[in-house]
Design a protein around this nucleic acid. Structure first.
Length: 285
DNA sequence: ATTAATGTTCAGAA
DNA sequence: TTTCTGAACATTAA
C-alpha cells in the first residue's frame, strides 16, 4: 500500500529511535506464510548486519533505507502491505523480521510486518546500491522533481495517469495519489501526457507538491482494509481528505456538481470528476 | 465462489 | 523503440 507519504511517515516514525543505535541481531519471525524475498538469504543477512550501527534512516522513493556503519545499505520495499513498526503490530502472524537493538532505548526492536508478503528486503554494498538504485531505475523523487523532469515525463504518449506511475520518470507516486494529484490539477487521467499544455505541466508539478505534502502532514492514508499504519500502529488521516480516490458515485467535493467516476487504466482503478477534469484542455489564460 | 486491493516485474504481442 | 496486456508474486476481505 504505501506510497511516498506513507513511506515518509514510516521513516519519520522510526528515525529518532534507530539512528546511532547498534543492531544486536536480526531475527526471522516464524509465521506459517511463505517467507518474503530476502537478498541475500536470511543467514547471510543476519551475519552481515549483526553489530553494525544504523547511521541514518531515509526514504528513497517508496523504500525505507538504512545506512549502516560498514557502508552497506539496507533497502526495505514494503510493496502492498509492508510496515515498519516500533511496537504493537496489527497481528503477530505477519511479523516477518525483527532487528533487535543493542543499547537500551524507548524501543528495543524494529519490525518489518507484511500481510501479503510481497515486500522485499535487500542489503547492498555501496557499489551495488549505486548500480541498482542510483540512476536509471529510479527517476527524481516526486517531492524534488524540477520542471524539466515533469517535461520529460510529458514526452511520453501514454495516458498521463499511467505515466505518473512510471517510477523511472518521477519516483514515489502510486495509484492512490495519482488520482488525487490529477483531480487537484484538473487534468483528465486519459489525456495523453504529450498533449498537456505548458501551464498544465506546471499545474501537475504544483498539485503533486500540494497533495504529497498535505498527505505527509496527515501521516498518510489508511484505507478501509486498514492495512497501513504508522510506526506505532496508528491510522493515517489523509483518507478523510481524499477528493476522488475510492469515492466513485459520490458527489465531487470540488464542484459539487458531477459524480466521481471509476475507470480502469493499465488494469488499475482510476477515479476522477468529469466536470473538474475535462478531456479537452480548457482554453483560457 | 468471485473480485479487488496503496506495488513491481516479466514475457509476449501490437 | 514504445506501449499495452496479462500474469505472477501471496493474502485477505467484501
Amino acid at each position: 500500500m504505501p506510497e511516498l507519504p506513507e513511506v515518509e511517515t514510516m521513516v519519520r516514525g522510526i528515525r529518532p529511535h534507530l539512528e546511532q543505535r547498534k543492531i544486536r541481531e536480526l531475527r526471522q519471525c516464524r509465521c506459517r506464510c511463505k517467507p518474503i524475498s530476502l537478498t541475500p538469504g536470511f543467514r547471510t543477512l543476519a551475519t552481515r548486519m549483526r553489530g553494525l550501527t544504523i547511521t541514518s534512516v531515509r526514504r528513497l522513493a517508496k523504500r525505507v533505507v538504512l545506512d549502516l556503519s560498514d557502508e552497506s545499505i539496507l533497502a526495505i520495499e514494503p510493496r502492498m502491505t509492508g510496515l515498519m513498526l516500533l511496537a504493537d503490530p496489527p497481528d503477530p502472524e505477519h511479523l516477518r523480521l525483527e532487528w533487535k537493538l543493542e543499547e537500551a532505548g524507548e524501543y528495543d526492536s524494529v519490525w518489518f510486518w507484511d500481510r501479503r508478503g510481497l515486500g522485499t528486503v535487500r542489503l547492498y554494498t555501496a557499489d551495488e546500491f549505486k548500480a541498482e538504485l542510483g540512476t536509471g531505475r529510479l527517476g527524481p523523487d516526486a517531492l524534488a522533481a524540477a520542471l524539466t523532469d515533469w517535461e520529460r515525463l510529458c514526452q511520453s504518449h501514454r495516458a498521463i495517469k499511467v505515466a505518473l506511475l512510471d517510477q523511472q520518470r518521477i519516483a514515489g507516486i502510486g495509484n492512490l495519489y495519482a488520482s488525487e494529484i490529477l483531480h487537484l490539477a484538473q487534468i483528465h487521467p486519459e489525456r495523453p501526457a504529450s498533449n498537456l499544455l505548458p501551464r498544465e505541466i506546471r499545474a501537475l508539478a504544483a498539485a503533486t507538491q500540494a497533495v504529497l505534502t498535505e498527505a505527509i502532514r496527515y501521516e498518510g492514508s489508511t484505507l478501509s482494509d486498514g492495512t497501513y499504519r504508522n510506526a506505532l500502529n496508528r491510522d493515517g488521516g489523509y483518507q478523510n481528505a481524499h477528493r476522488v480516490y475510492a469515492r466513485a458515485g459520490e458527489c465531487c467535493p470540488t464542484c459539487q456538481t458531477d459524480i466521481v467516476q471509476r475507470i480502469v487504466q493499465a488494469q488499475r482503478s482510476t477515479f476522477f470528476c468529469p466536470n473538474c477534469q475535462p478531456l479537452t484542455a480548457r482554453r483560457k489564460r
